[in-house]
């Protein structure tokens, strides 16, 4: 079946069987390998992308189901001129990543979190990222980065 999505603002299509997971569609059919796959049962959050702006698990979505819709992946978070988004910059500044495998999922989740709540409390941040596993950082610097990103967004808007 032909599946066409608008990915990071660009219309992209490929012919795939109905069982193709959105995660595999992005990674293998569209060669956007920034979205990672850590469990394929919806718990780790590595595969989180934005579907029409809302974070979803791309491993728990068939590509064919979301035919015609808009997807943003980690490759689409930076500005058009290549400058990293405030969330990306905050992650770098706060050392919020180590191996980097879970990071794309966190970036997508945090981007949506801060859009909906520009000044979250510590508790809201921890709950807001609680659908994403990280095995390296112990989360402390991720939490710090979310607060820092909130500050950067506020400064720049």
């Amino acid at each position: 079946m032909l599946v066409t999505l608008t990915v990071n603002g660009v219309r992209r299509g490929a012919s795939v069987p109905p069982r193709r997971l959105l995660s595999d569609f992005l990674r293998h059919d569209l060669a956007l390998t920034g979205t990672h796959v850590g469990c394929e049962h919806g718990v780790c959050g590595c595969c989180t992308v934005l579907l029409d702006g809302e974070p979803v698990r791309s491993c728990l979505t068939f590509a064919v189901t979301v035919d015609g819709r808009e997807v943003t992946t980690v490759e689409g978070l930076a500005r058009a001129d290549g400058e990293m988004s405030p969330v990306q910059r905050a992650f770098a500044e706060c050392h919020a990543l180590q191996c980097g495998f879970c990071t794309p999922g966190f970036l997508c989740a945090v981007t949506a979190l801060l859009r909906d709540d520009p000044a979250p409390s510590e508790r809201q941040v921890r709950e807001g990222i609680s659908g994403n596993l990280c095995r390296c950082t112990g989360y402390q610097n991720i939490v710090k980065a979310v607060h820092r990103a909130a500050d950067l967004i506020a400064e720049e808007s």
């Binding site: 809302e54 979803v56 728990l60 807001g128 659908g131």
Partner: peptide, 9 residues
């Protein structure tokens, strides 16, 4: 119920 990304779908 689960986490925000799950509740979105």
């Amino acid at each position: 119920v689960a986490h925000p990304a799950i509740r979105n779908r």
